[in-house]
């Protein structure tokens, strides 16, 4: 299902200081690792929730959205009769952020809930990187305005630590201890043409 292009150069040019180029820094996850992590998370979600009944996967734009769609497709492989389109949705949290004034105005993403809504269902938020936890706080606020889920869980591809809020992920693709000066860059086929997770900068 992940029919992305070939992997980038296996020996990426390591630029000291990390200038942020396309292939700078060290690759920590490639396309097969991302695929395996998502498959494992899909099974963990099913195990924890005893099936896919009442599940809603909400991806946080930009890169949480394709991850949620991939997870939904994997759930449908395991649970016959499940329609991936009816499970996956997107949740834009821009207007709920507490750091809006610190950045240039962000473009707004789409919020697109499955037709059945989220009331009394189990919502799994899906994002690419878990860092300070502030995006997830904004997502919880946004959910509050949309309905009342029975439970909310969190799935992330990468947990890089440095939480500023009491938030933790239920499903983690890879725990990635980082220093604050490093940058974690997730790229996905749907948005960037290639599946990879890289760490830039720092003295690694």
């Amino acid at each position: 299902m992940s029919s992305g292009p070939a992997l980038p150069d296996p020996v990426p040019p390591v630029e000291p200081g990390g200038s942020g180029g396309e292939d700078s820094g060290a690759e920590v996850l490639g396309q097969p690792e991302i695929a395996r992590a998502l498959t494992r998370i899909a099974h963990e979600v099913l195990e924890r929730n005893k099936g896919a009944a009442d599940l809603v996967l909400l991806g946080i734009p930009t890169r949480g959205l394709p991850l949620a769609q991939r997870l939904a497709a994997r759930l449908a492989e395991v649970e016959p009769g499940l329609d991936p389109a009816a499970v996956a949705g997107s949740l834009d949290v821009t207007m709920y952020r507490d750091d809006l004034h610190k950045h240039p105005t962000r473009p707004l993403g789409a919020t697109d809930l499955p037709a059945a809504g989220i009331d009394d269902r189990v919502v799994v938020l899906v994002d690419d990187v878990l860092f300070s936890g502030r995006t997830i706080r904004a997502a919880l606020d946004a959910l509050n305005d949309l309905g009342r889920p029975r439970a909310v869980q969190l799935a992330v591809l990468v947990d890089r630590g440095h939480r500023e809020l009491p938030i933790r992920a239920d499903y983690v693709g890879k725990n990635l201890p980082t220093s604050l000066v490093e940058k974690v860059r997730v790229r996905l086929v749907e948005t960037d043409g290639v599946d990879s997770v890289r760490i830039d900068g720092g003295t690694r």
Binding site: M95, L100, H101, K102, H103, P104, T105, R106, L108
Partner: peptide
Amino acid sequence: YLLLAQER
């Protein structure tokens, strides 16, 4: 939104 969100 576009005028005020980042203005502070």
